[in-house]
Design a protein around this nucleic acid. Structure first.
Length: 424
DNA sequence: TCTGGGGTCCTAGGACCC
DNA sequence: TCTGGGGTCCTAGGACCC
């Protein structure tokens, strides 16, 4: 039997914002999504005064008037940097580490240590807090699903240790009785509604269900969750980072956009960003999808969602080819007279770069391909060195449309020399 | 007035082949 | 006029996650 610990950073983005501003520790802090659209992280004080996850920013303006809430635009380079420091610490405390998301990791703990799992978890907590200023909660159990359950309980224990261990049957059953079925990892909104309608309310109800019924109604995915609740390990720990299968860049607009030229600029910008991303991962794409859509929340206007996928003749990560195809595809789905609110591109069927099909229709020599690769390399190097957007495609008009409204952005304390914090 | 972005996996059904 | 059955591959859409 393996022992899995789930380490989850508390209110991660909000915690990152307070690291360099200790005076914020006793104030509610929220972090907003792109475009300062909705709340995507809240400190525990912000939760206490009733700010809910995912609510649009404009809906909490009343609360902000009454309380001294500190509001931040999201600063992903800061969070990414802090995240890798946290993961670096965690590595020292386990046999295997799976970085599950920016603020979460699964650890396989060594069973033959002299010290208890609980003691070691507490040490992890102490160290991440002291070295990095990041508080974490830890759940310990026999597999990922149960460690998620344990972690869920640990998070609730705000005044206590925020470490919960669920290793024996009795502990597990008690825990499942106090958790809603919808709070289990893998049970989303739709399945929750279905289960509720069947009288399955708590995690324990699901645990006690007939496995054949589960298989029939929830498929293999549900079956795996069920088995994990019973202590089996169905989701392995994946240490090595897997190659990405798709890469998406999309944005909502600050205002409505109708005209083609404006959409075109944005699509070129997203295509540029997406191709940069796959080149930096040394990948190439076989397919590209372009999509544009109206505001899904606004019922006053007709809704429209246009998307089209195109297959490259040969997989590519070449900036110019991707942009050309993206613009052509946009022309096919664009309809005039519509108020667009969001657009994006998706590069999919990604594979390792460097394998080309022979092009049947155009005589692309090896020489030509190499020339393109070199041009892309120069493009990437310049933008890395002198900042994104230093060099771009003329039609993009020197604007990077994927950078949106960020009124309350904090400095890049840890990733830019110009913005290092000063002590004075 | 203002409502994020980027991923994964599974499945049903169509296309195609023998 | 009669019009099989079974396998594989691909894709769109649905569900989930953070």
């Amino acid at each position: 039997m393996k022992v899995v610990a789930l380490v989850d950073c508390n209110s991660f983005y909000a915690s990152c914002e307070t690291i360099f501003k200790p005076y914020l520790r006793n104030q509610p802090v929220v972090v907003l999504s792109n475009n300062d659209g909705c709340v995507i992280a809240r400190s525990s004080l912000a939760k206490k005064i009733g700010i809910k996850m995912g609510v649009p920013f404009f809906q909490i303006k009343q609360i902000i008037k009454k309380h001294p809430v500190q509001v931040f635009s999201s600063n992903y380079s800061l969070y990414g940097n802090i995240s890798s420091r946290v993961m670096g610490v965690l590595k020292n405390y386990c046999d295997q580490l799976e970085i599950y998301s920016v603020d979460e990791a699964f650890l396989i703990l060594n069973k033959f240590s002299q010290r208890s799992f609980y003691t070691r978890a507490q040490e992890i907590q102490r160290v991440t807090k002291k070295w990095l200023g990041v508080p974490v909660s830890i759940g310990i159990a026999k597999n990922k699903t149960l460690s998620k359950v344990a972690n869920y309980l640990a998070k609730k224990d705000e005044t206590g240790h925020q470490v919960v261990e669920l290793l024996n049957q009795k502990q597990i059953e008690i825990a499942l009785k106090v958790i809603d079925v919808g709070d289990i990892w893998g049970i989303g909104q739709r399945i929750n509604i279905f289960l509720q309608s069947q009288g399955i309310k708590s995690a324990y109800d699901l645990y006690k269900s007939d496995p054949r019924w589960i298989r029939q109604h929830l498929g293999v995915v549900g079956e795996r969750t069920y088995r994990e609740l019973h202590g089996e390990m169905c989701f392995p720990i994946i240490e090595k980072e897997q190659a990405k299968k798709q890469c998406r860049v999309s944005r909502s607009f600050e205002n409505y956009v109708c005209d083609f030229k404006n959409l075109e600029k944005r699509i070129i910008s997203y295509a540029t960003r997406a191709s940069e991303k796959i080149r930096s991962d040394k990948l190439q794409a076989k397919k590209i999808t372009v999509f544009i859509r109206t505001n899904k929340f606004n019922k006053k206007y007709n809704s429209y969602s246009g998307f089209k996928t195109y297959d490259f003749i040969s997989p590519t990560n070449d900036l110019f080819e991707i942009i050309k195809v993206a613009v052509n595809t946009l022309q096919k789905i664009y309809q005039p007279g519509i108020k667009y609110k969001k657009a994006g591109i998706l590069l999919s069927d990604l594979s390792e770069e460097g394998i080309y099909n022979k092009d049947l229709f155009f005589n692309k020599s090896e020489e030509n391909i190499l020339k393109k690769v070199r041009v892309n390399k120069v493009f990437d190097r310049l933008n890395r060195r002198y900042g994104s957007g230093t060099i771009c495609i003329a039609k993009e008009n020197y604007e990077r449309f994927y950078i949106t409204r960020r009124k309350n952005l904090s400095p890049a304390y840890t990733s830019s020399f110009n913005e290092l914090p000063s002590v004075g």
